[in-house]
Amino acid sequence: MSGIFSLRAWEKVWLYRGTFLLGLFNTVRTAVFAILLALALGILFGLMATSGKRALRAVSRVYVELIQNTPVLLQTCFLYYALAFSGHSIGIITTGILALGIYTGAYMAEVVRAGIEAVPKGQFEAAQSQGFSYLEKMYYIILPQSIKIMLPPMVNQVVNLIKNTSCLYIIGGADLISLTYSFVTGENTGGAYAPAYLISGLLFFVICFPLSKTASSWETALKRREQRQVFARKNAGGKEAMADE
């Protein structure tokens, strides 16, 4: 009855639809909080990576390299089991939020760093010369210019994070992938492999695809706007304005 055309298998999936929706709910819930954490960490460590203080840059570098060069699965296990055995159990959902947030935060930090570094040095100097403090400079002058560069890769990281909730499986999570797996291997529910994984995949797809689409259309719009600006500048006869870049 595992066949993709087995009506019984599909019926079983429909009967247990609550399981899939619960999994989806847990995945989305974990993802939302993890995204917020990742954003906060990304902005913090991204700003540190571009600061003038060497110690801050070093701390940021260590964080990014440690997290990017070890598996997220290991980080999840470390957080869950290592902490659990030292007597600080924090629960599966919290572990998921922390592990995925910290993991994606490292990538977000790189996105933020790249976005800030893409802004010409003269913009920082102009803001400083007007007497903007560090935070004012970032808030009014630099980040508004880098946000459009940062948004598309940020959304891609969000999509990755949502898919990475499947890592919770290793610590016995109740996310969509974990529940799908227990469904297809369960004593009473087992067997409906093809329909179950199709449905599970479809649920991921309907969340992630619009996000990816948004990211790529932002990217296209951004490129088009840049071309328009170059064109406008040429028309204005501002040859020297381009020497700037």
Partner: peptide
């Protein structure tokens, strides 16, 4: 420097450095 520069000094750059956004 932030306060003193804000109150006392402005600067005009070779590359203008207007805020493009």
């Amino acid at each position: 420097r932030t306060k003193l520069v804000r109150e006392s000094i402005s600067m005009v750059f070779q590359q203008f450095n207007l805020y493009p956004h």
